[in-house]
Design a protein around this nucleic acid. Structure first.
Lengths: 205, 205
DNA sequence: GTCTATATTCCGATAGAC
DNA sequence: GTCTATCGGAATATAGAC
């Protein structure tokens, strides 16, 4: 059967699944506890029984998501692979990852923007992804004459922008570019190879 | 005096300015009519006198913003300038433009994502930016052997992603990359030249 | 046009039965 | 643990005086 019934799920798991879905599509302020209860197939009061408040429930979901996203970002970057291979690997893995949950980027970006202070609090305790290592690697490759001079932060921004933004701006791209859903999916698939090629062609000496 | 008093503004203008500001920073669902009234220095009831409902007020703002943003995107692209010059011009103008209202991108993206159907309705009647012309120009330059083969849509995505995304992801970049506000602003400024160089270096034959 | 006061709706949260 | 019923506050919207 195509639809997942999840009849054997615990109530807590059902709530978390429902909350994740609703929060991601509507954001914290746009989500209703009723929506989440409906989605989970249970009563509103139960939400408060398991998680004291909407705020607490949101925190749980948000932390869960961030703790899933940040390590993925750094795992590849902090490896000791050669720069070009690292870039190829990152694009492939990262795009594949976002494809599974394409609304995550915009969710994170908008929530972080709405409450920058709360964000810092929520992320407190997380170790910062060691991007510095990546930066050093870039500097080294420049000195070795492997790649042209470029500010490592610019390279990082270019890389992440091209991987993530198309997912966040999908409706815009489809509208502005006159691209239908099927073609868009194909383009995304191609980007796993296109982006590293595009970047390497630009920086390689 | 630093703070703009705008004492000669009409009430309607004051409301629109206030609504724009509040909606952009908190989104449709996060914004309160009270916030907007306070920001405009008037009473809540007046908002309903000028605009029947919160929904109507939001529509007005959203449309206004979209009708400001979409043409800017196409104005440069549809000119008859050579491709490389067009890319340089676009990055420069576009980044300069977003700098004036850096929260617009994330606002548009998140609102569009939250109500995709409403978005289509709201945009109805807008003429589609003629990106097709840009696509054709890219194809032509490929055939002429000026640039390497690339899907025009990919080039468009790369271009727009690198210009817009850093603004949307600013807090993330600063956190993840350990970049302070001043450095970030400098990097953005540099991107006006960096992005076209980066792109042209990649696609030039 | 602009205000105060009030109505109305919505929503997060709680009480209490089972 | 799960439900129904309800409270209480907040937010949108309206009525009506000036």
């Amino acid at each position: 059967m195509a639809k997942k019934i999840k009849i054997d799920q615990s109530t807590e798991e059902r709530i978390l699944d429902a909350a994740r879905k609703v929060f991601i599509s509507k954001g914290m302020s746009g989500a209703r506890m009723q929506d989440i209860a409906d989605e989970a197939g249970i009563n509103k009061a139960l939400l408060h029984y398991y998680f004291r408040s909407k705020e607490k429930l949101f925190e749980t979901i948000f932390k869960e998501i961030m703790q899933q996203v940040l390590p993925v970002m750094s795992a590849i970057i902090e490896s000791d692979k050669p720069l070009f291979e690292k870039i190829r690997l990152f694009c492939n893995e990262y795009i594949e990852n976002i494809k599974k949950a394409p609304f995550i980027p915009i969710f994170i970006l908008s929530e972080v923007n709405k409450q920058p202070e709360a964000f810092v609090k929520r992320m407190w305790g997380n170790k910062k992804p060691p991007v510095q290592l990546f930066f050093q690697q870039v500097e080294k490759e420049i000195k070795r004459g492997i790649i042209k001079p470029i500010h490592p932060a610019q390279l990082m921004m270019n890389l992440l922008s091209m991987c993530i933004f198309p997912f966040a701006a999908r409706p815009m791209f489809q509208l502005v570019g006159g691209i239908n859903a099927k073609l868009f999916d194909e383009l995304i698939e191609q980007r796993k190879k296109h982006i590293p090629e595009f970047i390497i062609a630009s920086i390689k000496k």
